[in-house]
Design a protein around this nucleic acid. Structure first.
Lengths: 225, 225
DNA sequence: TCAAAAGTGTTCTCCCTACACCCATGG
DNA sequence: CCATGGGTGTAGGGAGAACACTTTTGA
């Protein structure tokens, strides 16, 4: 392969995207990491990511890398922020644009690339490559903020779910315990949940009512806990 | 000046920082813009910003550009997000990392560079260069969120201020009207304001009590309106 | 003297919280 | 039969919202 060169009058940093991918297994909040197969930091776990191509936005690049490296389609993808410390990559100057992705773990997990990928509970994160531990901590902070005005459950749970599952999700993200009855009351009162009619299953199933949600969002609502 | 060249194996975008600089003149929330002296978009108003140098973080670059182009020191500087649409700069691929800066308008405004700079009310923004109108709108949205858990007044008002000034600030940012008495009650109740003892001035002056604030922040507080 | 701004307190309502009982299912 | 989990209702407390009167200052 020919060694093409791209030249500029002033120094340009390389730009990558990295994804903090959150999933929920029914018990705990998890983060998807891949093991690096090449130096630097070979063998360490890292956030999935890669270089931005010239014709895509950072959002498109993040979605592409996510799909390529893990096989997941993000049901939600949001930019976190850019990380620009000059020495954060030992090879050359690389700035990364970090993203938060929410995926439904139940979705097919056919990782295309052969890269080794694994879910880690957020309190059992191993040592990470680059400044990815910093990025991950920032992502968790952002997620905990986000939960107050975004129906995160819709992106992390299956279409239909029980109230208990939803509560466990909230509890595992916020590291708290809620009163079972008050939690259900509050959720139903807000109006973004619709009970499933079918009377066959005993634990009542719910689904998100996105129409009500978008109305609420436009009025700027917030969920207090 | 010699034409140095910086070459890479893969294409690298140029990286700039841009600042949305908010100030408060006692009546309305303002944004500081500069008029572009060169193409592209020559003559249009734009957010102050410039290219990132190889040895500085985006935060440092934003602070430097802010100082160089407007003479202001930001009392608060926070990354908003990166803007990466491939066509956003007609010259070459340029991604920008946008920042929100809060400054005290009363501070010396000795603009170092001769660039024409002006404060604009947030509802009287002229046509802007590049995608700066999008950035500005995002910054306003973020600021309106931010106001709920950051004492924005501390970065936008003088050291000492009246309750009315603080209320006007909040009202101009959120585009609402508060009951004068309930607003004061709530602010004092929170505990981040300290009344100034000196009995000479009639309208009671206050200052921010940053110690109480940082305690509150650690406990994760939020101000509802 | 009058108008405009600032200081102060009370009531009502609603939401959040704490908490207990019943029913259904499955072992 | 019993244990577990899910469904439902109520009483109390606290914070926010609505609201009026008095005082001072400056024109």
């Amino acid at each position: 392969m020919e060694q093409k060169e791209y030249c500029y009058k002033y120094p340009h940093p390389a730009v990558t995207t990295d994804c903090v991918i959150f999933g929920f297994d029914g018990q705990r909040l998890k983060v998807l990491l891949i093991r690096r197969g090449i130096d630097p930091y070979k063998g360490l776990w890292a956030l999935p990511g890669g270089f931005l191509t010239p014709d895509e936005t950072a959002e498109q690049g993040a979605a592409r890398e996510l799909k390529e490296e893990t096989g997941f389609e993000a049901s939600y993808l949001e930019q976190l922020r850019a990380y620009t410390a000059p020495g954060r990559d030992p090879r050359e100057r690389v700035i990364t644009i970090a993203f938060i992705a929410l995926v439904k773990i139940a979705d097919v997990c056919g990782g295309d690339d052969a890269a080794e990928a694994r879910w880690f509970a957020t309190d059992e994160i191993p040592q990470l490559a680059f400044d990815h531990d910093l990025i991950l901590r920032d992502a968790l902070t952002r997620l905990r903020e986000k939960i107050h005005f975004h129906p995160i459950g819709h992106d992390l749970l299956p279409e239909q779910f029980t109230m208990k599952e939803l509560q466990t999700l909230y509890e595992s993200i916020l590291n708290v315990n809620f009163d079972r009855r008050n939690f259900a009351k509050k959720m139903i009162h807000i109006g973004i949940l619709s009970p499933i009619e079918e009377p066959k299953s005993r634990p009542q199933l719910y689904e998100f009512n996105l129409k009500t949600y978008s109305e609420l969002k436009n009025r700027g609502f917030r969920l207090e806990f």
